[in-house]
Write a protein that binds this DNA or RNA. Structure first.
Lengths: 335, 335
DNA sequence: TCGATGTGTGAACACGTATTCACATAGGGG
DNA sequence: CCCCTATGTGAATACGTGTTCACACATCGA
């Protein structure tokens, strides 16, 4: 009978704090703005009232201001199955937090249609970071239309801030290492063809082989996963028993290849067969694997992404910069 | 000389679309609101103009409305070193996207001071999800003060929506399995004591042993990482050579233990020594490990978290619910 | 004393949207 | 013709904040 329908309890607002402290609403705002004119006693009185009421400035409303920033950054990345993506995303996340940004994480790829990416552009993001290379160019178009800075990593996009490992040189280093120790019958276990990195590494592999006057014995495909690395290598070695060196498109595939070579074919690694991966994820150094690999420097990549982001926020009209990360060989027990 | 200082280009606004289409600003808003009164031709004219100008409703401004939601959910989780946290966070992320929410990811713990968590409460979040159990109760207090729904997983919090595996029963199942196959000299390699799950698993281990009239031979500590699992087990077996079964606080630790047992002590697993992990992360089924473990059902956990979230958003005053996930034994090659 | 400078303060506005309100128009039944 | 309902529509408002504007007041140098 009595009107029980109550309104949803709202968040405490600056107006209420002002009322409680007996000051104007503007004063409350100033109390939370460093460097604003406000007498010391009034400020402490306001902060005390805010504390008591549990007030906290609403970041959404603040982000709506003329020169306000939302401090939100969307990070689009690949699947968890790819340990490298997972590790670098975590590092990037911490870095963003360190500079006062919050990351909205979109990870796919199966559920990550391009449409889903465009949906997140409804938020006035400080930036969109594309990690990994399977998304189309139209995302870049919509970003520029909405004045949302775009930073790409894992591939190069002309005119756009990009940070990317030199995949071809990485492949060349791997081939040089393999050839230098006498391997002549080399095979490649690749990744998904739609991925920029997988394509580049394959091309670098072929080019480097040709420079030595060699040709690849075989190519196998995978999806950058352990399971398919295992399966592909099992088949590869069955059909090409004379292969003495395998270059894998990433570390997880290389781990699958290692297990397949040892367990399915009884091969001795590295005496009998060399295996080289790509990325140098943290698991590569585990005693189980001791994987020789090409280091794809995550810390340097994250560092440069953050630098480009900060510089872009300071200068909207800066010309797009491209950063190439140099890969290097990490010798362990599989070569 | 000529005033070159241009204003920062803004995002296209509904006002500009209205002007371009020759309608009122309200009409533009209605064009993007399903079920609002708007003639068909006017709607299509507006959508066309919006398309041309690259307009997209600003989610921040929309979230500021009286009954609006930000559709932002903060997810606080543990370190990447913990594969389980990493995998379940990814699944949770996809689930949230599926129901139209965006996740702001905070992952620690080293950089993840409690203060940092409180900072993100500046946003009017639809909910805060705490995954993993190292954060204090004061976060819950601030959430309730700000009317931000809280969902906890990985630990139980009275009166708060919680989803958690029955860690003690999981440990009991592991002990029962080990004892049933004749193991009598059991040891435990634990995790960080500040983690709820690690404490519960240890207590479950002791209780279950006592129920069999046994006592633990030894306890070793780790930080839930592979490296410390390896190191702790190396030392453990050196000091207690008669140990014939090791229960590990999680799978990554168990993998470290497995490598240590085989490589440092030449033990045959499982003939000579049984090893049981906890969580059943995806790597546990890799041929390298074939780890026998206790399944900590991620899909069920995520499912329940999402359900609790939806129900909470529909009914602010619903009483806090607790969901306990049943663990089960997954036999593989290490026991 | 006067003007200039520096400090403190509240009123007002802008940000971009969804929604309410008031009003128009049209159509149908009496 | 009039009343009533259904359907469109624009003006106005609320959302919560940071910041500008105008003004008051005190201090200081001349």
């Amino acid at each position: 009978m009595s009107g029980l329908k109550e309104t949803k309890p709202r968040r405490v607002t600056a107006q209420e704090v002002a009322q409680a402290a007996g000051v104007s609403r503007a004063a409350v705002s100033r109390a939370f703005t460093p460097g604003a004119y406000l007498s010391e006693d009034k400020k402490s009185r306001i902060l005390e009232a805010a504390q008591k009421l549990g007030y906290r400035p609403n970041a959404l409303a603040a982000g709506l201001q003329r020169k306000g920033r939302s401090n939100l950054v969307a990070v689009v990345t690949g699947d968890i199955a790819n340990q490298f993506d997972s590790e670098i995303r975590a590092k990037l996340n911490r870095g963003l937090n360190r500079i006062g940004k919050w990351s909205i994480v979109l990870e796919g790829p199966e559920d990550m249609s391009e449409e889903k990416i465009l949906e997140v552009l409804a938020y006035p993001l400080d930036a969109l970071i594309l990690r990994g290379g399977s998304v189309s160019e139209s995302v870049a178009f919509h970003c520029s239309q909405l004045n949302i800075p775009l930073i790409v990593s894992g591939r190069l996009m002309p005119g756009v801030d990009s940070v990317c490992c030199d995949n071809r040189q990485g492949a060349r280093i791997a081939v040089d290492q393999l050839v230098a120790s006498g391997r002549r019958n080399l095979a490649y276990v690749g990744g998904l063809n739609r991925l920029y990195s997988a394509r580049e590494r394959r091309q670098g592999f072929e080019t480097a082989l040709a420079a030595h006057g060699l040709a690849a014995v075989a190519f196998a495909k995978s999806d950058y996963s352990y399971a398919q690395g295992y399966e592909a290598t099992t088949k590869l070695l069955a059909e090409n028993p004379h292969v003495d060196g395998v270059f894998c498109s990433n570390d997880v595939v290389a781990m699958g290849a290692l297990a397949a070579a040892q367990q399915e074919h009884g091969r001795q690694v590295p005496e009998d067969l060399s295996i080289v991966g790509f990325d140098d994820i943290s698991m590569a150094s585990w005693p189980d694997f001791q994987l020789s690999t090409i280091k794809n420097d995550m810390d340097a990549t994250v560092e440069h992404i953050l630098r480009l982001l900060v510089e872009r926020l300071n200068d909207e009209d800066k010309v797009g910069e491209t950063v190439v990360i140099k890969p290097e060989f990490v010798p362990r027990q599989t070569h």
